[in-house]
Write a protein that binds this DNA or RNA. Structure first.
Lengths: 195, 195
DNA sequence: TTGTGTATATTCACTAGTCGGTATACCTAA
DNA sequence: TTAGGTATACCGACTAGTGAATATACACAA
């Protein structure tokens, strides 16, 4: 039985992360992941029981880094809740200009697996998105916002809207527009009418 | 050279539409489309020069029906611009409860083709989404809204956010939340402060 | 120190089937 | 006779997954 913390396993997940994010899970073969990791397919199958398992592990590995990055952007921004929320979008727009940026791996994977709602990778994605929404609600509530949970959900919808539409138009203006919308929604839930 | 309006061609596109939407373009083989259409692969390749071509034709066929459906929801709703915008989401939530609903074919295809930004199907998707945004801006401007283009873009972001996040959570509550957010954004752009 | 057993980790070679696309031939209607 | 449209049969490349053998390392007994 393979170790959960094996360095080989980590090498495989890292290789899978690079390829799955760049090309999409359906366009990357298990052979390709094994080659990228510098080992054979049989070794990969020693550490993961199926490709579906590997896909879930790939997304699981992105959970914490993604959450921390978003939280970092929010925390680092000056100003009230509206400015902090908008900062997430400003930073996202900057990231999206990088040529290797291909949207959100969780959403793209869910789109590819839309016909398999119970797929383990979708459960991982669902947990990740819920974690983010929960964190955002608590962060907003620390900045004197009314109904932080409802507001967090609205902002999450705008963020995921950015991810999707960027894959169609490849135009970061949409992210800036979403940031302004988010700020508007925050102000609509701030007692003073302006934070 | 095949006819553009050939009934055989239409049968192929209809079959492709059923399968591609249900399973995703990457999980459906050309053989499967041919069988669904009740003809052989060779005949399919007489009418389409490649699978990529067929994918683009599939999305092209969804352009007008999708636009008309959304416009119908907006036009049929009672009330001001805020209520009409929210009606899009209410109807979307109802549609999303259907077991065969699998989100937006344009966005899912773009997600699958994220590594090929110049793919003809993505261009079709981009055109479709732009058409919708343009129509929505003009519809909003007919109802006394300020900056209808900026507002239309914000609402589009919420709609596409719904499509994406629904594939992760499968929870129509998100669509209702997006509808309320859209209404809030409309009111923020209405002179009276309330339409 | 040496030998044996055991669990972990890895490789090569393979299966059975699918993929997008095509060569060739045939049928039918103008 | 010609051209549009369809069918059979096939191609080489690739797919996820597996069987059997092997390398490595450490435990314990003689």
């Amino acid at each position: 039985m393979p170790e959960a913390q094996s360095p080989t396993r980590k090498r495989i997940v890292d290789a899978a992360t690079r390829l799955f994010y760049a090309e999409g899970i359906g366009r990357v073969s298990v052979d390709a992941v094994a080659e990228e990791a510098g080992l054979t397919k049989r070794t990969l199958y020693y550490h993961f029981k199926s490709k579906d398992d590997l896909i879930a592990a790939y997304l699981d590995g992105r959970d914490q880094p993604n959450l921390k990055r978003m939280a970092g952007w929010f925390d680092a921004a000056e100003g009230g809740a509206d400015r902090k929320a908008e900062a997430i979008f400003t930073n996202l727009a900057r990231a999206a200009r990088h040529p290797k940026w291909k949207g959100c791996g969780f959403l793209r994977t869910a789109a590819e697996l839309a016909s398999m709602p119970g797929h383990p990778a979708i459960k991982v994605g669902s947990r990740h998105k819920s974690s983010f929404e929960t964190w955002l609600a608590s962060a907003l509530s620390n900045h004197g916002v009314e109904e932080p949970q409802a507001l967090a959900r609205e902002i999450v919808l705008l963020i995921d809207g950015c991810f999707s539409i960027m894959l169609i138009h490849r135009n970061p203006d949409y992210i800036e527009a979403a940031g302004r919308a988010a700020a508007t929604l925050v102000r609509a839930r701030t007692s003073s009418g302006k934070a």
